[in-house]
Write a protein that binds this DNA or RNA. Structure first.
Lengths: 406, 406
DNA sequence: CGCCTTTTGTTCTATTGAGTAACAATATCG
DNA sequence: CGATATTGTTACTCAATAGAACAAAAGGCG
């Protein structure tokens, strides 16, 4: 039951029905390709005749193309339809504290080149120049991949999407950095930026085979140096008035707890970040020293997991302690958003078999109804590159998004 | 940028455009009545000719009616349109721990009778019988108000909307109570039930002169024996998979804090409920004794506020201490939902002038960006009966809701 | 091979509803 | 009283779904 917004509604014009059905058809081709007109008609519960006209329009605009013919046991063989990404590519960029990753994909997020990376330059101006150069070089080195539709950039911090600037990224030490305009000027392509937690959520929503939105609302939680969270409600990523929606990482577990980099104390992040786990293992607070010498870390969370697997009891206890706090925080997410599924990524998910029980136990302690304690939790491996996929989705998804109506 | 749900989408049929525009027109009449066809055409940016046809349809269905003529400085006088609620009424019921309130309104939530109340019967079966009788008596006593479109019931607890049953209401001591079927059988009207926090949010969204949704997302926080919260995203109240979405009352301020009735510890509710404030004033935990003797309370939060205003320093400190915790919890709401406005209701808002500063200070401590600390906070007085208005909206709003498309 | 059946995709016409212009019905002003 | 302005209706155009009929393509089977 949605209330119509009186300040910003859209009435149905003559072309609105077509716009709606065109969007649905295009997105169905995206997620079911290759697909025939007849199958599309069945999925949409429309007559083949109407589909023909819709498809002709999409063909004329080069949004889709006709491939070979499919198989059929009896009767005429179908001609198959595909999203037309032959002359287009998308650049995805993931800027992290130590390294920055670049991928080139088609509109469906399928890699067209190898993923490349380089050390993040801590000076934002120099970094943007270098990033621009590298993007141009990659495109020059790969002539066959066609024109670039745009660049999606994902950063570990708060962003002002409309203004195209990064507001605050503690792990990078950047504040109020204009990203979109200079990078757009340097590359000549449109640039979109987004916070990495939200981008990960976006990646799940727009994953080609994604059934994420079909489930209902979902939340993505990424655990690393900090905690990034993206919340999806009704197929849309929550942004909020000041672009801070979803910052569960800074909701308190204990307001009298240890100080957090955000200025408050006892934030969830303070208890479950990788640094917290390492600190617990070494028995001292690594937060300051670690931040100062980022990149030179000799011993990281993955080493800790190896030790835990090797029989190091202290390492296992440190992980399980983090798991407990992780579960307590997830309980808040469930009590507040009550999603159908929670996605979790981050190095610590490599030890999921060791910690799942602890997470579930802690969760059950605080979740309001027993059924909600069984909320699906899905691990997203780093090999899926959720942040990069999210960066790509920033560019490609708008073409497939639902039209705004009423 | 919304993703189309592939499991549950709706394509545009021949009548979809009309359906969309009809909904918009009807809802505009609802919130702007009385309004002329010409004004409607201007608001909708459509030609008068199209509006005439739309309006004729709405007239034929008795959804609106033509009233008198309006004033105009020059030219033909407009004929005014109104929502047709002449032959219809809606019953709103608010079941609370000690008393239950009943209102009879038209489709716009305007009272048609005085609000009546009676002591809540703690036995759910007897209570439903009594409620049914009272509803029938009220309707019998007021013959002029026309047929009843439905009954909206609001309860302080978790509900299963589709099943029409109350899952758990600690303050009532009710568990797994089937409400809809028996009450519907007793009265002969359709019955809708909802949690009171969400109903309050609903009331704001659907308030006739409401600009709530025009602002963006909003959150409603009701502070009394417990904390009820309703979250509105994109004009829709959040429910979640298990109907627990929005339960900020049970997110922790301190996981090592005092025990909460929900089974967990250190919940926000434990720090800011009225009982918490009173306990702080009396220097001992009233939670158990208070729950046991609900309704017989000699000294309540409103008395405390009177004392604080009268110069009782201890009372003021108790209130301001609660205010601080209130602010800390609101900070989480802002960090997570980042709404354009937060509505607050409850007895303690009667002391808002005494505590606003403390709330704002605490809020600023934890909110992630300075701008978000300025998030609008709007007090909703008890005299607005937000719960009853929400109960009414459960019945009346579906007729005005946006159609589901794509 | 020729005919039947099945399936795909197209064509043609009907119907619905937005878009537009022209017009009748009022009402005020000078 | 005529000029002007405003509201609401009517008649017609255009776009898109709805539906039936049909052509095209492929396999099964006597």
């Amino acid at each position: 039951m949605r209330k119509i917004n009186h300040k910003d509604f859209k009435i149905a014009r003559r072309g609105t029905s077509r716009e709606i059905n065109r969007s649905i058809a295009l997105d169905l081709v995206r997620s079911h390709q290759p697909i025939s007109r007849a199958d599309l008609a069945r999925l949409m519960n429309m007559h083949r005749a109407s589909i023909t006209l819709l498809v002709n329009e999409l063909l004329a605009e080069n949004l889709i193309f006709e491939g070979g013919t499919g198989e059929n046991h009896r009767g005429r063989k179908p001609t198959l339809l595909y999203i037309d990404s032959r002359e287009l590519c998308v650049i995805g960029v993931d800027i992290r504290a130590t390294r920055t990753f670049i991928t080139v994909t088609d509109l469906l997020g399928r890699s067209l080149t190898n993923i490349t990376s380089f050390p993040t330059n801590k000076d934002p101006k120099q970094m943007i120049v270098e990033l621009g150069k590298r993007i141009k070089r990659i495109l020059a080195d790969n002539q066959g991949i066609g024109a670039c539709a745009g660049v999606g950039v994902v950063v570990p911090g708060m962003v002002d999407r409309v203004g195209g600037r990064l507001l605050n990224a503690p792990t990078l030490g950047w504040r109020d950095v204009h990203l979109r305009e200079p990078l757009s000027a340097a590359t000549g392509f449109p640039v979109h930026i987004e916070n990495s937690g939200r981008a990960c959520a976006l990646a799940q929503v727009w994953a080609t085979r994604g059934e994420a939105t079909a489930l209902g609302d979902v939340v993505f939680v990424s655990v690393s140096d900090g905690i990034g969270v993206g919340v999806v409600v009704n197929g849309e990523v929550l942004h909020g008035r000041h672009n801070i929606a979803g910052e569960f990482g800074h909701t308190p577990l204990n307001i009298d707890g240890p100080r957090c980099s955000c200025g408050a104390s006892g934030c969830w992040e303070v208890y479950v970040s990788n640094i917290a786990t390492l600190s617990r293992y070494f028995g001292r607070n690594l937060a300051e020293s670690k931040l100062a010498s980022a990149g030179t870390s000799v011993f990281d969370i993955e080493d800790l997991i190896v030790r835990a697997r090797g029989g190091d009891g202290k390492a296992l206890v440190a992980l399980q302690s983090t798991a407990r706090y992780l579960g307590l925080g997830l309980a808040s997410i469930i009590n507040v958003i009550d999603p159908a599924r929670i996605y979790i990524s981050g190095e610590i998910t490599g030890a999921w078999d060791l910690i799942e029980k602890n997470v579930r136990e802690a969760l059950a302690e605080r979740v309001l109804v027993a059924a909600a304690a069984e909320t699906e939790i899905s691990i997203v491996p780093a090999s899926d590159y959720p942040r990069l996929q999210g960066a790509v989705a920033l560019v490609s998804a708008p073409a497939f998004a639902a039209p705004m109506v009423a």
